[in-house]
C-alpha cells in the first residue's frame, strides 16, 4: 500500500447516529491510510476524519451528536471494533482493542452505537 493510499473501513451506526451519516446503518468508506503526521491511521484519526468529512451536521459544536467540542466521542456512544484478523469477527468494545490507538486495517469494522434510554 502506498503512502498516499486509502484503506476501506466498514462502518455501522446505531441508536440514531445513522441520521447524521446519510441515514445508512452500514457503509464502507475509503479512509487515508496515514494520518496528518504520516503515522498509520488509527481509530482516533478515523473519528476525526468521519466528523470532518462524512458526517452531516451543521449545528453548534456543543450540541454535536457525535463528538464533543474537544474532539472526543460524545458520552453515551459506544465505539465497537471488529478486527478483520480475529477469526470470529466479533465486535468488541474499543476499550478492549486499545481505544483511539487501535491501528486501522483494511476492512476493519467500526461501529458507533448511541445508548438508548427508552423503556
Amino acid at each position: 500500500m502506498s503512502d498516499t493510499g486509502t484503506i476501506p473501513i466498514r462502518l455501522s451506526f446505531g441508536g440514531g447516529l445513522e441520521a447524521y451519516f446519510s441515514n445508512k446503518r452500514t457503509q464502507t468508506v475509503q479512509v487515508p491510510s496515514k494520518d496528518e503526521s504520516g503515522a498509520p491511521s488509527n481509530a482516533a484519526f478515523l473519528i476525526r476524519y468521519l466528523h470532518e468529512n462524512i458526517m452531516q451536521y451543521h449545528g453548534e459544536a456543543k450540541n454535536n451528536p457525535f463528538v464533543t467540542p474537544e474532539g472526543d466521542v460524545r458520552p453515551g456512544i459506544l465505539v465497537l471494533i471488529g478486527d478483520p484478523d480475529e477469526i470470529d469477527g466479533e465486535l468488541a468494545d474499543w476499550e478492549l482493542e486499545g481505544e483511539g490507538a487501535y491501528v486501522l486495517k483494511p476492512n476493519t469494522l467500526v461501529s458507533f452505537i448511541s445508548s438508548l434510554h427508552g423503556g
Binding site: G16, N63, P65, R74, P75, G76, I77, L78, D93, S114, S115, H117, G118, G119
Partner: peptide, 20 residues
C-alpha cells in the same frame, strides 16, 4: 463502567419524541 459519563441531556430521545 460502560457509560462513565451520561450523554448530554439534549441528545436523549424519549419514546414519546422518537417513537417506539
Amino acid at each position: 463502567c460502560i457509560f462513565p459519563k451520561p450523554p448530554p441531556a439534549a441528545s436523549v430521545v424519549t419514546c414519546g419524541e422518537g417513537g417506539i
